[in-house]
Amino acid sequence: MDGKGREGREEEREELNKIEMVGNAVKSYKEFYRKKRRIKLAEFSILATILIFAPFVSGFYLLWLITLGVIYSTYTLAWNWMETMIGRTSLGHAIPFGLAGYLSALLYIYTKNPLLFPLTWIVAGMLSASVLYILSLSRDRVAFVFISFLIGAIIWIFSPLFTITMGGEIYGGEEGFSLPSNPILVTYSLSVVLLLAVFLFFGFLRTSATGLKFTTVRDDERAARLVGVKVNRVKAFCTLISCIITALAGGLYALHFSHVNPEVFSIHIALFPFIATIFFKNDSEIGGVTGSFILVFVSNYLNSIFPQLHLLLYSALLIVSPGIIRWRARKAKLTGGV
């Protein structure tokens, strides 16, 4: 009787232990995501504070550079979203980035109405998204990298041929198109609002149930389909969001320079987000922003020493990138748990 009682108690204890263990798993999962959200919110607050106070403590040139950093950061986050959600490394994101500026310039020539610019940016994003979405339908991820790059390169090569004649004057070509000039604070404010909104949106989505479903596509498309994820819809959504945000950043870039030329489709624009995120965790928004700012400032410094010197930095980083990516993967495997 006594023995049975002890056995029963042991069974009961074991059962309780099991429940506690499961409870712990769920608890630690919830705790992990709560912590992740808190961290993202803290990062957001720091970034917002810095960006809000930046105009008060910066001179014109520094503010101009910071604005460029903000625009590139948004571009990097948009690019990184596609990479981390559906596992597609796009080297064709210069297409929405450049197209937005080009369409704005065209619209401006015909209508002289800058208020319609956001519309052209969205159109540019949608057009590019349709191309990249079709490419993403293939499960060959390596082919996606190279074909997206190829399409971007073709547009870059042939964009100087694009000219229009109006009132006896030729616009476009190597020189590109002009856009209306803006006070720096207008471009800065618009860029900051966009970056902060994107930062919050991605941060929230990444830590949500929807984000978890999306990441199944990144990890394994076949397995994702087996848990009922509509892979092609996820790809379409993520590509569209990524391209539209890239186009918004590209539109602001054109406004920032009051000018757009074939260089917006260039190889260094295409490679920028890839290089900016090499050293940071893939799912980290603050990593993308930090990387972009560092790259913008260092590139600018190098260019002041010798024109296009930043391309040497890009090349060096590209050469070491496979090693860094392998090191990061090893580190992720070693850190194991949640």
Partner: peptide, 17 residues
């Protein structure tokens, strides 16, 4: 073919959702 970068719990959660 699990979702390698997810935890065991998350792997199951994706199916349950």
């Amino acid at each position: 073919r699990p979702f390698l970068k997810m935890t065991v719990f998350e792997n199951l959660l994706t199916g349950c959702m």
